[in-house]
Simulated assay, not measured.
Amino acid sequence: MWIYTKRFDEDKNMATLNSGYIFSYSMYDGFCERLLAAELLVDHDFNFIFQMSAFEHEKMTRNNSDFFQERGELSRKIFDYFEKLIDLDVKGLKQNYNYVTFDISDFGSQQFLINLDQGLEISIRDGLPLECFETETESLLFEFNEYMKIWVEEKYKIWIK
């Protein structure tokens, strides 16, 4: 069963993460055949819950389900990225990294939620080049996002028969 930890805060005009978690990374395929949704939740002790679901995957997965969940201790690599990111000027990051002139709603996207101070929500559209991430913090965010997309794909490949 999917664990829901986000809510929309109307006062802040952004999605926020429940207080039991310090970090969340979500990704969505966009409108495509598998319709994959995945989320990594990290608590204050750096334990994680990873969950993903995909459209009509019951016969394609090792657990014969369209839902997968895993728990454990956060990997050193993800912890290092997170630590480096919060050590930089995260308040200087934009809330949305998107195409300037148009919005395609069926593109894949990723979302970072960080529970620091007032909270931080960052959304990124698939396909944005590194040039859209100009500062040192933005470059690290881009690198972290690329790593996380690969990490989720590896988890997906293990889940599929």
Rank of each mutant, 00 (worst) to 15 (best):
F55A: 09
K94Q: 15
F67P: 00
Q111N: 10
Y25A: 03
N145S: 13
D89E: 09
M52Y: 00
K77W: 15
S65W: 00
H44S: 07
K155C: 07
D117F: 13
F82C: 14
K155L: 10
F50N: 09
Y156P: 00
Y21G: 13
E121C: 09
E73N: 07
L35K: 00
S123D: 11
W151T: 06
L93D: 09
F50T: 01
Y25V: 02
D80F: 09
S123A: 05
F46M: 06
I78F: 14
N145Y: 08
F68R: 00
E83I: 02
R125I: 05
F144I: 08
E138I: 08
D66S: 04
Q110S: 08
G127E: 05
D29H: 01
K77G: 12
E131C: 14
I49Q: 08
F112D: 15
G108S: 13
D11A: 09
E143N: 10
S65V: 00
E153F: 05
I122P: 03
N98Q: 12
I104D: 08
E83W: 01
E121H: 04
A38P: 00
M14D: 09
T101P: 02
F102S: 04
M52H: 01
I86L: 13
L120V: 11
F144M: 14
I3F: 12
T16V: 11
W151M: 13
D45R: 03
T5F: 04
F112E: 15
G30Q: 07
E154H: 10
E10T: 13
Q69K: 02
Y28D: 09
Y99I: 15
Y99H: 14
G20K: 12
E83C: 04
K84H: 01
L141I: 02
N13T: 02
Y21E: 12
F23Q: 02
D9R: 00
K149R: 02
L93Y: 09
D89V: 08
F23P: 00
S26M: 14
L116I: 11
S19D: 12
H44I: 06
K84F: 10
Q111H: 03
D45Q: 06
G72Y: 07
K84W: 03
D117L: 05
Q110M: 06
I3S: 10
S105N: 15
Y28K: 01
C132N: 11
D29Q: 03
Y99P: 01
D11R: 01
N96W: 04
K6M: 08
Y147W: 14
S65P: 00
D66Y: 01
N13M: 09
I49N: 07
F107G: 04
E146L: 04
W159T: 01
G30V: 02
L128Q: 12
G20H: 11
F142D: 14
L140G: 05
E136L: 13
K149L: 06
I160F: 10
L85K: 05
N115D: 15
G127L: 13
L120A: 09
E154A: 15
Q110T: 03
R7S: 12
E138D: 14
